[in-house]
């Protein structure tokens, strides 16, 4: 995902589920920093599916794939149209 508009959409979706502003470093773990907890993640996944019109299969539901903004960007780059 290199489209700045899409990155902005991603950050806007993630921001809905974090307790504090997103880190400037897109590689920073949102779980280790305490921004996301285990119960926010399922809601975030559903919101990503809706925003980017994709269906994320259960087999892809590995928290490591959605651990940071950069990893979410990478996943969406591969799976979102």
């Amino acid at each position: 995902m290199s489209d700045p508009n899409q990155i902005q959409r991603l950050r806007r979706v993630v921001q809905q589920f974090t307790k504090d502003p997103l880190p400037a470093d897109s590689e920073e773990s949102l779980f280790e920093s305490g921004l996301l907890d285990s119960f926010a993640l399922p809601d975030l996944i559903s919101a990503l599916e809706q925003e980017f019109s994709i269906k994320i299969p259960d087999r892809d539901l590995n928290p490591r794939k959605f651990d940071s903004i950069a990893r979410m960007e990478e996943y969406l780059k591969q799976h979102a149209g």
């Binding site: 779980f31 285990s38 119960f39 993640l41 399922p42 996944i45 259960d58 539901l61 590995n62 928290p63």
Partner: peptide
């Protein structure tokens, strides 16, 4: 994290 995520779905 994986348990909660998978169970939630």
């Amino acid at each position: 994290l994986t348990v909660i995520l998978q169970a939630s779905r």
